[in-house]
Design a protein around this nucleic acid. Structure first.
Lengths: 248, 248
DNA sequence: TAGAAAATCTAACACATGTTTGTGAATGCA
DNA sequence: TGCATTCACAAACATGTGTTAGATTTTCTA
């Protein structure tokens, strides 16, 4: 279960056995969380860092009048709130969307480990910065792409990210979001999500059913989305340069 | 000139004289840059970290077909590409919008300083995380706010951020963006920017002229924008708790 | 397994925003 | 000082997306 996290951290570069062990020890015993439950809420000062081991979660913010925007989709292996260890409190909330398994680590322990193991610190920072790169791409998505392009782009991204942690089966992967949640992610209304999904289906590019996303024509989807996986920093590749020849 | 940076770093908590001195020494002699010139381009692996000392700059990305989205506005005191030191290359470009003064530091020197001076490392990380919080709020802005609300929100944010580095005069501050650039920031067309600015003016909330932004009714503007400065983490306050009583 | 609740899907209509095109004013450059 | 360029502003029209409301289907749960 902890594998998904290690796999992600090692995308960056390999950790020593001492490091992975220290990390594994710091991780509290996994906890099961029901769908649609807050893991951390805006304003919290958790003092613990939460790690998503299984299932899906969203970062989100709600405006005074109830409008909700999803800021990011968290997939297994993602850290939920590393930044809160430095900033002290959460400026947004995080909620599960599916049944999930999470583990936590004490923030001060993470800090200690980071000072002791510089490449662990580096790996954690790397995770945070990839998240930022993804958020920036979402800004492009919301600002400059049409609803259709946005949706296509989102599907490309999710498939790539899940593939990176070994959670895709060929052209399929899980994506347990309702059309309402998709709308809150893509900045469009639920009704328009429905229209858009129909168009993607009609063109034979994508079907989504029962929380399962299937991409039928990856090339065309990427083209329609103006998708360039550059910003994922080879998250989709097995192991970047630092890994030596004997790749597994 | 270096003051703007220090002032920002010290929002977080005070640096020792040794630290500020080490930082000052690492900063190469300032360089003047013309408006609308790239400071770093997408794909670059700069090896140096750039610091904006004076003037304005934008992070931006361009889609294959030419559509451009501004991902962030950089104001004096902001780091342009701290993350590139870890990620290795830029996933977006940074360009000046006004005449600007910048300085650079070698990435490896920054890394060295960070390991030697932990509270400097902390301060730099803090800057990065604030940037992320701002980017997340931009996602909300683009995804859930109307053109009018977005524009109002953007003006609130810029004024708060400039006030934080001592670059506002009462209800006014510089904002040298053309209506086209505002559109690329707010995810709307140039024509619609014009319409929106007129509405803000008609309501007596804001005027923008000759690169100068003036807010006539701050309360109403914040209300219309659904602006909550929370996400700026008290960037707008002089000095947070860690600073002792004798505040300047 | 029935009933309730949630999610998908449709349709009609409203409207915010985009597009195109053009004018006049401001700005920069030779 | 004049010319070219950029910028702000305007009007008419096109359209993508939002809204409201309701019918169907699926999923949950008692």
């Amino acid at each position: 279960m902890i594998k998904s996290v290690l796999r992600k951290l090692e995308h960056h570069h390999l950790l020593s056995t001492a490091e992975t062990q220290a990390l594994a020890e710091a991780i509290a015993r996994p906890r099961y969380v029901k769908p649609h439950e807050d893991l951390v809420s805006r304003g919290d000062s958790p003092g613990r860092v939460t790690l998503l081991l299984d299932g899906f979660a969203t970062r989100y913010k709600t405006l005074e009048d109830g409008r909700r925007q999803i800021l990011g989709l968290l997939v297994p292996g993602d850290f939920c709130d590393l930044h809160s260890a430095v900033l002290g409190r959460m400026d947004h909330s995080i909620a599960t969307v599916s049944p999930a398994t999470v583990a936590t680590m004490r923030a001060d322990v993470v800090e200690q480990l980071s000072t002791r193991h510089s490449s662990l610190a580096h790996a954690l920072l790397w995770c945070t910065l990839i998240d930022d790169a993804i958020t920036r791409e979402w800004v492009v998505n919301l600002g400059r792409r049409t609803a259709y392009e946005r949706t296509a782009h989102f599907f490309c991204e999710i498939h790539a990210r899940l593939a990176a942690v070994g959670l895709s089966r060929g052209s399929s992967c899980r994506l347990p979001l309702t059309q309402t949640e998709l709308g809150e992610t893509l900045g469009i209304s639920t009704v328009h999500v429905n229209r858009t999904l129909q168009e993607l289906r009609r063109k034979g590019l994508v079907t989504i059913r029962g929380g399962e996303l299937t991409i039928h024509d990856h090339d065309q989807l990427m083209a329609d989305a103006l998708f360039d996986p550059d910003y994922l920093y080879a998250l989709g590749q097995k192991h970047p340069p630092t890994r030596n020849a004997a790749n597994g």
